[in-house]
């Protein structure tokens, strides 16, 4: 019981401090800005309630983008990992390119993708997948390569083909690693969705944030960010739950 109460108390204390700072205009005076630009948690809560329809509609749009992009990245990431695992030559050739792909600033490539793929869901999926596949590929590949060589020898003397070795020994070994990568990916996926929406869209939480902040509706901006965070936490927790069901033999995860 104590282990649950202590973190909760800390969070409440932080929110309380923020509330106090906003109510007493400490931050606004310190930064020499208008007090209405620094919303109190209670203002954000009020916005969450009054804008619930708006937040839900746009949240749904963003959720669909995130799920679609994430699904693409799982397929691409696992596919890359398997191909690179099976071919060391290809791995040495392509691995640097994979790293290079992560150095492309998303803000730069997002508008180009919009030009190429239009204003629909296409560029959002592409951006999210571009961000997400990397941790999935790297972790899954590490998992495939971390297999105990004695296990491989053992299964070879039991008449396993290369494909069977991959399926029966290497893939199960890599599964917990895949989940580690997927959990990182799903948390950053929402950032990809926001960048994608900023580059050109008429709905989604990113779009809402952009619009609200342009109109100095800071409470609504923060409310949209809160929904975005909640989305990421929820998807992360969902993946962690799936992991516990299907990859229970992995290294024990530290509880969060």
């Amino acid at each position: 019981m104590k282990s649950r109460l202590a973190p909760l108390a800390i969070v409440l204390a932080l929110i309380g401090a923020w509330e106090l700072a906003a109510r007493l205009d400490v931050l606004a005076h310190g930064l020499h800005i208008e007090p209405f630009l620094v919303p109190a948690p209670s203002d954000i809560a009020a916005s969450l309630w009054s804008d619930r329809g708006l937040l839900a509609d746009n949240g749904w749009v963003t959720l669909k983008e995130v799920l679609g992009g994430f699904a693409l990245s799982v397929v691409a990431g696992v596919g890359f990992a398997i191909v690179l695992h099976l071919s060391p030559t290809l791995r040495r050739a392509v691995y640097p390119l994979l790293i290079a792909s992560q150095t492309i600033p998303i803000v730069v490539i997002a508008p180009i993708l919009v030009v190429w793929l239009g204003f629909g869901i296409g560029p959002k999926l592409a951006i999210i997948a571009l961000i997400c596949f990397f941790p999935i590929t790297v972790n899954t590949l590490d998992g495939l390569r971390s297999v105990d060589p004695d296990l491989v020898k053992m299964i070879r003397t039991l008449d396993a083909s290369r494909r069977q070795t991959l399926w029966r020994v290497e893939a199960p070994t890599a599964l917990p690693f895949f989940f580690s990568g997927a959990k990182i990916a799903v948390a950053v996926a929402v950032i990809g969705a926001v960048f994608g929406e900023w580059a050109g869209s008429s709905s989604g939480l990113g779009h809402l944030i952009q619009e609200a902040s342009a109109q100095l509706q800071t409470a609504r901006t923060f409310a949209a960010v809160a929904v975005l965070s909640a989305l990421a936490i929820l998807l992360f927790a969902l993946l962690a739950a799936i992991e516990r069901r299907v990859a229970w033999w992995g290294p024990k995860e530290t509880s969060t």
């Binding site: 105990d148 004695d150 296990l151 020898k153 053992m154 003397t157 039991l158 029966r168 020994v169 199960p172």
Partner: peptide
């Protein structure tokens, strides 16, 4: 030949 290693190596 079939090989039984030192560790049981059960999956």
């Amino acid at each position: 030949c079939s090989y039984m290693p030192q560790r049981d190596l059960l999956l």
